[in-house]
Design a protein around this nucleic acid. Structure first.
Lengths: 188, 188
DNA sequence: CTAAAAATAGAACGACCGTGCTAACCTGTC
DNA sequence: GACAGGTTAGCACGGTCGTTCTATTTTTAG
């Protein structure tokens, strides 16, 4: 996972992994029986990490607005902490396989749909709970929240500059603030 | 450039290019004299395309707000038209080399800095011309505009779904609208 | 028309790739 | 103590990689 997040899943080869681990190619090969399975199982493992580091913490918050904020903050924290040394594993996968037809492309597409749907669903719930304006379009709002998250992942990985995480937090806060219904006091 | 935008610059090899072109490896090699030069000159060529397709059209607009809008729209149009079949060449480069030290990483970092600086400078100019609120932080605003651009590039390449371009246009429009000073009439 | 230059091809080298064999080991259970 | 299952190693095969050589062809210049 570490290697794939840095150099791409295409660079995760049996020979390369064997060298990295200091074992023979056969030793690695016997565990996965093909390069495709090695890559597939690596994706599976990364999915587990993402679940543990992002989804589970965020989904423990109450549904609605708090979960929307929780998902954004959990993602930013996961990027900031450098859970994968090459940045978000699935952002890497998205950029690597967005234009390459095949099973991995389809999985990436499904993952992205799932992530955006999760955000949109929680936005919809927040609207029903009067935490967000009903006039906002949930998929549009989900897209707008996802933008700074994804961008900060690439830029943070590029420069190790923690200020881009702050910029993303500002952006997310602003988007949510403007989608909130006005509450009694002075407008802002 | 086409091959690199789809499969990554790492997949742009002398042998692969020779096979793709139906010529011998030596034939390709003689033109570039090394794999690194092939990749370097490919980046140079892509820079020319980006200049022609995005920067030049956008920079023909008057400085300030119109150029900010022009840069965003030019980028979205460039993604939408599929100038590179694998999506924006430099977004591909960013994701591929963000975690790999070396000369390409440094060029990518400089390019990103340049792009964000260009946006921030035009935002600053727009502020001086009272087209945008002076209280906004130009680098923060540039980051917020860049988010939907970058995200739409990856998602459009992934799904060929033109609706993500619309979402990005909506996002950009909203960000700019909220950064504008109120003008006489009814607010909205 | 000729001579220099550029482009292309072909073969070879060592390195790495995935994969299939065979053989050794290590760790259990009966 | 034997026997099975899982783990590792070593070797070989055909393929691709970048690169270096040597020809050969095509283009250009004078």
């Amino acid at each position: 996972m570490r290697l794939a997040s840095i150099e791409g899943l295409g660079s995760l080869t049996i020979g390369r992994l064997a060298r990295e681990l200091g074992v023979s190619k056969s030793g690695v090969f016997a565990h996965f029986r093909s390069k495709e399975r090695l890559q597939q199982e690596t994706i599976e493992a990364a999915r587990g990490i993402f679940q543990r580091e992002v989804l589970t913490p965020a989904l423990s918050a109450p549904e609605g607005l708090q979960q929307v904020e929780g998902l954004c903050e959990a993602y930013l924290s996961y990027v900031e902490r450098g859970v994968f040394p090459g940045g978000c594993f699935f952002a890497q996968l998205l950029a690597e396989f967005d234009a390459q037809a095949g099973p991995i492309h389809d999985q990436v597409a499904a993952d992205q749909r799932g992530w955006l749907t999760l955000l949109a669903d929680q936005i919809h719930t927040a609207q029903r709970q009067d935490e967000l304006l009903a006039q906002m379009d949930p998929p549009q709002l989900a897209f707008e929240l996802y933008g700074p998250l994804e961008l900060s992942n690439y830029l943070f990985t590029l420069n190790q500059d923690p200020s881009v995480i702050s910029r993303a937090r500002n952006a997310v806060r602003g988007i949510i603030a403007r989608a909130k219904p006005p509450r009694g006091g002075h407008s802002g």
